[in-house]
Design a protein around this nucleic acid. Structure first.
Lengths: 141, 141
DNA sequence: TTGGATGCAAAAGATTTGCACTCCC
DNA sequence: GGGAGTGCAAATCTTTTGCATCCAA
């Protein structure tokens, strides 16, 4: 709790119960949830949370670098609160996003390419995840 | 022309004027166009092309591997007919997508990670492109 | 001939916006 | 007190779908 308050203050954002609830979700949820999933999780326990606030807060958190927006799910935006360098695997069948730890196999510290200023890098793998391959119930999103 | 006909036949797809028009666009357009941009370009010269057909054809071309769907523009899907291994840079300001040639700096030939079957890999860089940095009219999408 | 393609318009999703109200600092 | 944040609903934008018609093989 205190931790989340500090995160917001540190980013220059006002502390509100809605924002704390969203950060709390991220602390437990490593599934790279979409805005809708976050909204549903919260509105279950915390009535009086609107879509607008979820989107609003998420974009503030992305802007300030507290979380990252992933471009990996072709259907919707996914969000990741885990900021150390790592990659992602997206299962086309169950739509789960897995973290892939950074193995140091390429140079992610590039700051410029051909005159373009680089702010972020995403390495995305797509395919079928182990659970889905073995049909262990990983098939449903 | 003949080239495009062969591409479709080779993929087991029926040859229609609409599909040829779309392939023709890709032959000239290296801007990684979205479905809407393709639709607009064609409906200018070729009235009687519907959105449905554009989406339909694009998904067939993606399914068969003739083109690639990029997850790099947070707003919409972009398509790339250039299939050799390469990466992409997305300018947050002008929304252009640039090809970045593959320099062999990491191993893109992985077929499996932790039991997950890998079908495709995308390495995406995001930031501000050279034109936008120097405000050479690259700012408008 | 015949199943795949197309066109149209409506529908479905995801995300954004306008605006009045609220409450954090 | 003031401005950022919130809630609600409507709007926007992208993509999908249903279905009748059409046409390439």
């Amino acid at each position: 709790m205190k931790e989340n308050i500090e995160k917001l203050r540190g980013r220059g954002l006002k502390v509100t119960p809605q924002r704390l609830a969203i950060l709390e979700i991220f602390k437990r949820d490593r599934t790279h949830p979409s805005a809708e999933k976050i909204y549903k999780k919260i509105s279950g326990k915390y009535p009086g949370m609107s879509f607008a606030t979820v989107y609003n807060t998420l974009s503030k958190l992305v802007e300030t670098g507290e979380i990252q927006e992933l471009d990996i799910d072709p259907d919707k935006k996914r969000f990741d609160p885990y900021t150390p360098m790592h990659y992602h695997f997206y299962c086309k069948r169950c739509k789960k996003v897995y973290d892939i730890d950074y193995g140091g196999s390429f140079a992610p510290d590039i700051k410029k390419i051909r005159g373009h200023q680089i702010d972020s890098i995403q390495l995305n793998f797509k395919g079928v995840c182990e659970d889905c391959i073995h049909q262990r119930g990983g098939r449903r999103p």
